[in-house]
Design a binder for these strands. Sequence first.
DNA 1: AAAGAGGTCAACCGCTAGAGC
DNA 2: AGCTCTAGCGGTTGACCTCTT
Length: 178
Amino acid sequence: MGRPPCCDKEGVKKGPWTPEEDLVLVSYVQEHGPGNWRAVPTRTGLMRCSKSCRLRWTNYLRPGIKRGNFTDQEEKLIVHLQALLGNRWAAIASYLPERTDNDIKNYWNTHLKRKLQAGARSTTSSRSSPTRPTASMGLPQPAPTAAARRPPARRPRRCPSARPPRLGRTCSPPRTSR
DNA sequence: AAAGAGGTCAACCGCTAGAGC
DNA sequence: AGCTCTAGCGGTTGACCTCTT
C-alpha cells in the first residue's frame, strides 16, 4: 500500500479562496490557534486541503502581514540576504517578520531579479570580484524557524510539465494593491 | 476602443525533514 | 531501525491586471 495523498483529491476545492472560506479559517485559527492543519478541513467543514489552509493563513490571513510596497530598506535587505543565503525564502522571511516567504519570493522574481540583471549588464565591464556580504552586516536577528535549519540543496523535480489545467479564478476578492 | 504583450501575485505541486509509532 | 504521516519549503503556473501599440 502506497502512501495516501495528503488530501482527498475527490471533493477538494481548489483555486481562489472566497471571503466566506477566509472567515471560517480565521475564526477557526482564532479559536484553536495555528497548527494541526490536518484537522482544519474536517473540523471547519472547509472543502480544502490542509496544505491549502496553512498556505492561505500564512500568506494572507495571518495578522501583522504587510502587503505590497516594499521599502528601500526592505529591498536592500532582501538583496543582501539573497546573496547571503540563496533562495531560502523562508529563512529570508524570518528577517522580515511582516513579510511572507511567498511575498518575498514573488517580489524577488518579479522586481529584484530583473533589476539586478539590468544592473549587472551595465556594470559588466568593471567587474571587480563581487564582495560577498557577511552575516554581520547589521542584520536584525531572525526569528527562529525551521527554515533556518534546512539545507539549501534540493533535488530537481521529476516531471514539471505533467500538471492538470487550473481552475478559473472566479470568485477571488478584488485586489487591493496596484 | 480593441488587441496583444508583459507583469503581478495567489495558489498549487512535489519534495524533504522530522516527529511519532 | 524502519515506516508512516504531517508540516513546511521552494519552484512553478496561469488568471488577472496594466501598459503599449
